[in-house]
Design a protein around this nucleic acid. Sequence first.
DNA 1: CTGTTAGCGCTTTCAA
DNA 2: TTGAAAGCGCTAACAG
Lengths: 334, 334
Amino acid sequence: MSIHAVAKKAGVSVATISRVFNNPEKVSDTTRERILRIVEELGYTANLSARTLRTNRSKALGVILPTLLNPVFAECLNGIALEAARHGYYILPLTTNYDVRQEEQAVSHMLASNADGVILVVSNPFDSKALVRLKQSNTPYMLAYNRHDVHPYVSVDSEAAIISLVNHFYQLGHRRIAMASGTLHASDRAQQRYKGYTKAMAALGLTPPPLIEIPFVTSVIDALVDTLQSDQRPTALICSNDLLAIRAIRAAHLAGLSVPADISIAGFDGIALGQELTPSLCSIAQPNEEIGRLCVEKLIGAIHAHHDLTPHDSALLPYLLHHGESCAKATTLL
Amino acid sequence: MSIHAVAKKAGVSVATISRVFNNPEKVSDTTRERILRIVEELGYTANLSARTLRTNRSKALGVILPTLLNPVFAECLNGIALEAARHGYYILPLTTNYDVRQEEQAVSHMLASNADGVILVVSNPFDSKALVRLKQSNTPYMLAYNRHDVHPYVSVDSEAAIISLVNHFYQLGHRRIAMASGTLHASDRAQQRYKGYTKAMAALGLTPPPLIEIPFVTSVIDALVDTLQSDQRPTALICSNDLLAIRAIRAAHLAGLSVPADISIAGFDGIALGQELTPSLCSIAQPNEEIGRLCVEKLIGAIHAHHDLTPHDSALLPYLLHHGESCAKATTLL
DNA sequence: CTGTTAGCGCTTTCAA
DNA sequence: TTGAAAGCGCTAACAG
């Protein structure tokens, strides 16, 4: 079913059919309507590969994310999808599972697929070959969640966010405030969050216990139960993301502690599900959908203006401290 | 950066470059290696639009899902992505937000994008225009989660699953077993699950209370709190999916009930997160990744064999009853 | 083993 | 307002 079949049936040239879709005002009302009827009747849809090849524009935005199993990214993708659709763009999502090799492949795929722009989150923007490749390609792109001086990004100030969280705990009477994180070197966000933690602790004159760094392969619960059972256990635990916080709550439960009576636990990300849990999750909430939406808005702006995005286009969005039930005042017993 | 640039730089014809990628054995070792070096140097990647247009194969599988905000579908997509990658296929995911109009658009987009096959879950396969369109297109497709006699699908026997769950509750001493569900007409799965519930209750000689049907727009918690506070409240509640069950647990909490001491709550889907919660979620677990994986396997088999998939290719995968902490023996007080 | 060439379906200039 | 025709980048005969 090609444009030729439609042209033949309508008794016009293929150019006219094409115009009906791309420059409808250049076709007389009567023929346009007749053609549209035939198109409907035949169920014709333009072949996007041919269109893309010819115009060198795909109307598709590539989206490269670590995983969709973490709702943070699913929420962000949702924001991207809605805004893209609003502008008549398709999206081409790909996940990398936090693997730099896959990040590079994903970028290659986006370029090969003629994506008009790319939104991506990489493990580490400071040594990402994928990012270099993308920058060289002259395809407009936007980092989400990552932050780097020479690349445009949309993110939140994680460091400041954690500082405000530590201060919040302090005001609730907590002194033994610990932090748990995934592998630090695998994520610049985790690094920023940890940095905020050490800064805040220092500013308060508190000695931070060593970071509880949990490798990907390790069971979070196994890693935490020991710490939580020691008699020098923290009264408050900051987790570098919400999924980790949920597991920490379970670890506390298995260690015989109740949350928040015995220990306060907070996360980072603000996944929607956190508010539905019992206890509801205390978390630094990022505007995940809005991060995605804004990336699209800026990207499409750049595409239409025929210019690339620069660090000057970066944006830092406000975060929110969700006061969930998983955090409470420190008991004076410890 | 086209194939011509590479050919020019290598001093060969474009055909040779093409062969290096598609029939490497037809090119002498020395030229092949030289060309690969140049390709690397130039960062050349074949233009997929051109390739697809020419070959009429995209090596892409379309995936149409209701939403990625429900982990069931994110998990399924993950299974799809892994298996597709293993076979050298890309995926082209699209979400429809349970909207039939968007389902139709998604199918159109997949056809326009020359997807070699499509995996989809629709609201209701019995009146889906999207599904009819797809069937007529001669593009191989596979339904996931849905079940219908004239379409190929991969799913689980939801009805039998719920029956076993009701019996499980019965054996735990529960008699007032209620069910909550999203809008029934919007999902054939919800219908199957409800049917299993009424059948099982009848077989046990129990009178089922009316289904608690919760429209999309309504707050689940508001909808449930009343029921849970009545003195004829159920001692066990079956939710037609895990997200609903998580909200029901919260509603119980707000109604002053503790789970599972006062009320047992079970879900359906077996999202991975359910096992990390406290209490861990009792749920009928579907093999979500395997459902996705199998869809891909069958689809690629059909693509390579140049035949369509038929109802004969359908598969019903085994489910598992996760005995989570959210369910327990009925207290004899009621 | 390598080159020449037609043509996939579409858009777009140019001419009528 | 419409048509003819070139050409986007690639693959796959076919020829050598």
